[in-house]
Amino acid sequence: MSPQPPVYLVDDDEAVRDALSLLLRTYGIEVESFAEPCAFLTGLDRRKPGCILLDLRMPAISGLQMQERLLARGCNWPVILVTGHGDVHACRRAFKAGAVDFLTKPVDEQALIEALHAAFRALQSSRERAEAQALLARLTEREREVLDMISRGWSTKEIAGALGISPRTVDTHRANLAEKLGTTSVAEFVRLALARDERGGTAP
């Protein structure tokens, strides 16, 4: 397991920044805080992937606008929006834009930690998906077909029958798959194949 990703806290209130940073650090979570969204966005490319804890209402750029800017820059790190008032409309819009959670101030410790863990999981799975994508991208068309059939639980014989090739050739494909994906486990094959499907099933 990779080390805990950092939390980027964006809030214009210094006291809130300090308090939340302190609280999260007691959980061993790395926190970097910013008084305004622009400061965070400026160095975005250099930062480690992490979870963004964003105040909804700030001067200059609101939380929702910042969320949109992140998406525009292709950054799909999980965002948790924190707001002083539970505005249903803003909440719906935030979720539509891909926020993982929506918390109301004052933030309860329990809810915050749960939301962060969910965000970390989302970050993790998106990273794994990205890795799976990278691995799958190296496969040939035929290898992808074979992987598909393996993940459906078909035997070598069945695959050979379906594709009109010899079982020996299927075995060769399986060996190539094992080498390219770095695993011989069928379970791992299935996981990777599913990761691709999660991206909408589009062939690269």
């Binding site: 209130d13 308090a19 008032h85 004052p106 933030v107």
Partner: peptide, 24 residues
């Protein structure tokens, strides 16, 4: 809403600080 927002900020700090202190 304005009053709530203004009070919420220090309250957030207060709550989080206290919870952090409790853990420490």
């Amino acid at each position: 809403s304005g009053i709530a927002h203004e009070l919420t900020q220090p309250l957030t700090a207060l709550l989080s600080q206290s919870q952090a202190a409790l853990r420490l």
